[in-house]
Design a protein around this nucleic acid. Structure first.
Length: 568
RNA sequence: GAUUCCGUAGCUCAGCUGGUAGAGCAAUACACUUUUAAUGUAUGGGUCCUGGGUUCGAGCCCCAGCGGGAUCACCA
């Protein structure tokens, strides 16, 4: 409920005027399209004969009106095309209304049009559509920001405010083509990954988002409630334990792209819901998985960019494998100059103190090592690097290392200083797994609120037997950020989480009272409403003026009867 | 959560030391049949985020709140 701006009122009038002229601003009929603007730009020069009778549709994005002929730009899903429209071409005979009134006055930037005609090249060499027929497809009653670009591609009146761009992504996508490109790339990344997995014969599956036990990761969940079962449920923080159940069930390879939900802080790399891809392949280990990930990432990058070396921020990153492999302890040795491999908890705590890393009593050995790693190593890992062999304490779902006691077979892939993938040789010994869960419970008792919960059904599945398996998780949002050169997660999510927009118009007690009466009956005769409101003359007057002033209510006078109605 | 910056026309932004609210684009009107950030002339358009306070006077100063960005902390 908001007062309309001058331009919004103007556009609503244009809509009415179109109707009065017998033109439906929102026609029901489909509009046949036989080409896209992208196709025209790409192929017209070589196949001019194919573009003599074309039909396109899209938004009117700019107009240059000159007397009885005009230029404009129409934007479809693939791009923009200049069009040239002459009064006498679209208005045969004496009636020039379609050009003089409809095109010049009643249409505006943002309106959807259908255009028919033929392609030609202007004197200045721009491929354009010579319009012979113009159809209104949808009238826009809210003015779109007009973003201008000069010959060098400089943007002049950008739609740049992040808040508005994220809240009104539809506008962002309409006026900022590079934003649209990012999301197309995101979709293509997922498509390519899916193709790779399918080509290997692995099965795409779906597992529960509502879970009674939130397992598979260390994070705080969103909780909800099922009414019929009258039980608490959680939005999943991970799907790992369900995918492993499917491996137990006999699938050789299963993968899932899906949203995960974590009830934690938000920043440029964290959104409460995010997309992950998890895959589990039987009879494999994490060495095999490293080779698979290299091939996957290399192929995806090649398909998206046509090459494997791309620029991310200030860095040139080579995505072609093989990637460097470095154990967790070696990486700390290399970048921090300290050998922590033999240290106990007290020793690690001392190292942290020397490095100025804050620690607390809830931190176990694994977490301390991770802190040192995060502080000293992570940011240095620019080119794709596998960090392998993590301390057992921080990884309750991975198998113990085949040769190194105290470690597990796990790797994380780091690129540009950020983690983008995480993988294990999966723990399939049910007795070991139960002990690991019990260790997690001990951590929880120490106050670690992210320690993993015991999942009895998952343990039962393991007891039936799970084949040796390797599993991998990739953060799709982060991979997309990397491959589209974006530094905030909001730029790769269509609708990033936001606080609710603006509160409703505030009303006084008297105004609220009248508003409630109007909700029950509207329109209503003003005398009746005043009677029901039971306010003093003065209060009634002030409240009514308030409501009309806020655009909530409207007073109409027809002859002798005055009625009040709600404005929607 | 902490720190810090920001919120003014449909959009992008000015607004000095507190003194009647400005520009470009967009809109409206007129002119113009190959323009392209079209052009020329004229016109209209404001809850200066909200609520308090100080003051003769607040877009500007003070307090509180709302929303957003950046940095830090936690997490992926």
């Amino acid at each position: 409920m908001q007062l309309l701006s001058e331009q919004e009122i103007e556009r609503r009038k244009d809509r009415e005027e179109l109707m009065k002229l017998g033109i439906n601003p929102y026609p029901a009929e489909a509009f046949p399209i036989n080409v896209t603007t992208e196709d025209i730009h790409r192929n017209y020069e070589n196949r001019k004969n194919d573009y003599k009778s074309i039909s396109i549709a899209g938004r009117l994005m700019s107009r240059r009106i000159m007397g009885s002929a005009s230029f404009g730009e129409i934007q479809d899903a693939t791009g923009r095309l200049q069009f040239y429209v002459r009064r006498d071409d679209i208005c045969e005979g004496e009636d020039k209304t379609l050009y003089n009134t409809v095109f010049k006055k009643l249409l505006g930037i943002g309106d959807f049009l259908g255009l028919k005609g033929y392609i030609f090249t202007t004197q200045t060499g721009e491929i354009s559509l010579h319009v012979t027929e113009l159809t209104v497809l949808s009238k826009s009653v809210k003015p779109l920001p007009v973003v201008k670009r000069d010959e060098d591609g400089n943007v002049h009146d950008g739609f740049t405010d992040p808040e508005m761009r994220y809240r009104q992504r539809y506008v962002d996508l309409t006026v900022n083509p590079e934003v649209k490109k990012t999301f197309i790339t995101r979709s293509r990344i997922i498509t390519q990954m899916r193709r790779y997995f399918d080509d290997h014969g692995w099965l795409e599956v779906e597992t529960p988002i509502l879970q009674a036990v939130h397992g598979g990761a260390a994070a705080r969940p969103f909780d909800t409630h099922h009414n019929t079962l009258d039980m608490p449920l959680f939005l999943r923080i991970a799907n790992e334990l369900y995918l492993k159940r499917l491996i137990v069930g006999g699938f050789d390879g299963v993968y899932e792209f899906g949203k995960m939900f974590r009830n934690e802080g938000m920043d440029r790399t964290h959104n409460p819901e995010f997309t992950s891809m998890e895959i589990y392949v039987a009879y494999k280990d994490y060495i095999w998985m490293m080779e698979m990930v290299e091939e996957l990432i290399e192929q995806v990058t090649e398909k998206i960019h046509g090459k494997t070396k791309i620029t991310v921020g200030n860095n040139e990153i080579e995505f072609a494998g093989p990637y460097r492999r470095l154990t967790m302890y070696d990486s700390i040795k290399e970048y921090a100059g300290i050998d922590v491999s033999k240290m106990d908890e007290d020793g690690l705590r001392k190292v942290c103190a020397e490095m100025g890393i804050e620690t607390d009593a809830t931190m176990g050995k694994g977490k301390l090592v991770d802190e040192i790693f995060g502080e000293k190593v992570e940011a240095n890992l620019i080119q794709p690097t596998y960090i392998t062999d993590y301390p057992i304490e921080m990884t309750p779902l991975a198998k113990k290392h085949r040769t190194e006691p105290g470690l597990v077979e796990r790797f994380e892939l780091f690129v540009n200083g950020k983690e983008i993938a995480n993988a294990y040789t999966e723990l399939n010994d049910p007795i070991d797994q139960r002990e690991r869960f019990e260790d997690q419970l001990k951590l929880a008792e120490r106050g670690d609120d992210e320690a993993m919960a015991m999942d009895e059904d998952f343990l039962r599945a393991l007891e039936y037997g799970m084949p040796p398996t390797s599993g991998l998780g990739i953060g799709i949002d982060r991979l997309t950020m990397l491959l589209t050169n974006n530094t905030t997660i909001q730029e790769v999510l269509f609708f990033p989480q936001m606080r609710p927009e603006k509160k409703q118009v505030e009303m006084t007690e008297e105004e609220k009272g009248i508003f409630e009466l109007l909700k029950a009956e509207s329109p209503v005769a003003i005398a009746d409403l005043k009677g029901k409101a039971g306010l003093s003359g003065k209060k009634w007057d002030v409240a009514m003026k308030g409501l009309t002033g806020k655009g909530v209510a409207k007073v109409t006078k027809e002859g002798d009867s005055i009625t009040v109605s709600l404005v929607d």
